[in-house]
Amino acid sequence: MKGVIFDFNGTMFLDSHLHEQAWFHMIRKYAAATITDEEIFTNIHGRTNSEILRHFINKDLTQKDIRKLSDEKEGLYRELCLKNEKDLVLTKGLVETLDHLKSQCMPRTIATATVKENVAFYFDVFKLDRWFDFETVTFDNGTFPGKPAPDIFLIAAKKLGLQPNECLVIEDAFSGLTAAKKAGIGTIIAIDPFGKNREAFEQNELGSGGIIQDFTAFQELLLVK
């Protein structure tokens, strides 16, 4: 392992419930048909906003429509983050992990399906510039397909100047783990903070490098060796 690529949402920041809340609101507001909670849940994580909007609202949305709806959704999401201050913290053990990686001069970056405005929000709220260079972060800029396509991790590895098989990826979403596997990432670790997905990850041979609950376990798995 020569570099580490972190997913962000649901991995570094346990905000899946806030994204879900914002998407449920948007889809129920704009979708013509009734859609089940289960369908919404299974078709949002790891995907780009344009993919989600076209899937649930209208496959013929213009880029202007997508931008407007995406801005509305992300604005609502950030409002929810600020209203839930107790949840606005990094995952347990992550600060110590990032400090250790920095002390070891380990190349590291973030690969996230979210938009640039949210990445800027996270850098501000969590002071991520302590550990990451904003310019190396890969986010949804509309130029590549979302997870489970491998593109995001191929781009992230290239930004680190590494081959995919030289990198470790840490991910929480089924689609993200699938993307890492397709990208040929050398070590893939799944994080399952609430113990809901271990069986599905194991059955689909995802997270072959280990399945952890938080970053205290991540350190035990890798950093004390």
Rank of each mutant, 00 (worst) to 15 (best):
G146S: 04
F139P: 11
I152S: 01
Y77L: 12
P107W: 04
H55W: 05
L53K: 02
I57V: 15
D71E: 14
G93N: 05
T48K: 14
R54N: 00
N43H: 13
D133W: 00
T42A: 09
K59F: 09
G75I: 06
F121V: 05
K73W: 01
R130N: 10
A113Q: 10
V95W: 04
Y77M: 07
Q104C: 15
D99T: 15
F123E: 01
S70E: 00
N165T: 14
K73S: 08
R47N: 08
R67L: 12
E51K: 01
L69C: 05
T91N: 06
L90A: 08
Q63A: 13
A149D: 13
I110F: 00
H100E: 14
I155H: 05
Q163P: 08
L160P: 05
N141P: 05
F56A: 02
A120F: 13
A113C: 09
I155K: 04
V95Q: 12
V95D: 15
P164Y: 01
A111I: 09
N141D: 14
L61Y: 01
R47M: 14
E85S: 12
D133K: 10
H55Q: 09
D129V: 04
T48H: 13
R67N: 12
L76N: 11
N141M: 03
S70M: 12
T97Y: 00
D140I: 07
F126N: 00
L154F: 00
V89S: 03
F123M: 04
T48V: 06
